[in-house]
């Protein structure tokens, strides 16, 4: 569609000789939450990294707001308005919470809501209490909150969330779902990669299922429920 915020097509990514993504294609609307579903090793993280420019796709196109960004350096992709929340959190452990937020700070954007540390502390109350603590001393859930807050400091238009529910306590997962809904309310678009179908269903509008580096399904959760064998074949363990 012409009004897609992000449109990926024919994306092929290799690690050395290994063909990781083959002809991956999907799109995200301006205020849509899309779940990128798939098993471990299916290529979810690689897809997100290819969009972000952290790995260079060998071929294919990534169009953001009508402009080709495939192969751009990550900092340029970020400056265009795409925020990246990595899978392994990657907080700057020796920096304080406040300093972590400072690293993510970018000037406000006309088409996205402006985030300040105060607003983020309201959204993530745990971080407010720990603003002067080194990030490395916090719990996994708190670090996960911090990485999201840090990315939001860049005032992104589209947020790429890589496995936000992985390895954190159920209570925090619930909080995470709230945050994603809040981002949608703010008018942002979100791409989350997930293995957890249940969580994805709660927070997202649409699903893209990827298996062995190729897209197997694109559609609503209702469509997915109408074809139970798809989920069985691509997601069940």
């Amino acid at each position: 569609m012409a009004d897609d915020l992000l449109a990926v097509s024919g994306l092929n990514t290799y690690y050395g000789g290994a063909h990781i993504l083959s002809d991956v294609a999907f799109a995200i609307g301006g205020n849509e939450v899309v779940a990128l579903l798939g098993r471990n090793g299916a290529g979810k993280s690689t897809t997100i990294k290819s969009v972000m420019g952290l790995v260079r796709p060998r071929s294919g196109s990534v169009v953001y707001q009508g402009e080709e960004i495939a192969g751009d350096e990550p900092y340029r992709v970020c400056r265009r308005g795409i925020g990246y929340v990595p899978e392994e959190r990657r907080v700057f452990s020796e920096l304080t919470v406040e300093e972590n937020l400072e690293v993510g700070r970018r000037p406000p954007r006309a088409d996205a809501s402006e985030w300040t540390p105060e607003r983020l502390y309201a959204l993530f109350p745990n971080l407010a209490e720990r603003r002067r603590h080194p990030a490395g001393r916090m719990s996994g859930g708190e670090q996960q909150m911090l990485t999201i807050a840090r990315t939001l400091m860049g005032n992104p238009r589209l947020v790429l969330l890589d496995e936000p529910s992985e390895g954190i306590a159920p209570l925090i997962v619930e909080q995470m779902a709230m945050v994603i809904k809040e981002l949608k309310r703010e008018g942002l678009a979100v791409l989350i990669s997930e293995q957890n179908l249940h969580f994805a269903r709660i927070v997202s509008d649409r699903a893209v299922i990827i298996e062995k580096g190729a897209v197997r399904f694109t559609g609503t959760f209702a469509d997915l429920d109408a074809n139970p064998d798809i989920a069985q074949a691509t997601l069940a363990l």
Binding site: E73, Y75, R90, G104, R106, G154
Partner: peptide, 12 residues
């Protein structure tokens, strides 16, 4: 600590 992450956060 992690220069790639700094790049992904928009720092040249």
């Amino acid at each position: 600590q992690d220069r790639e992450m700094v790049g992904a956060l928009g720092v040249n």
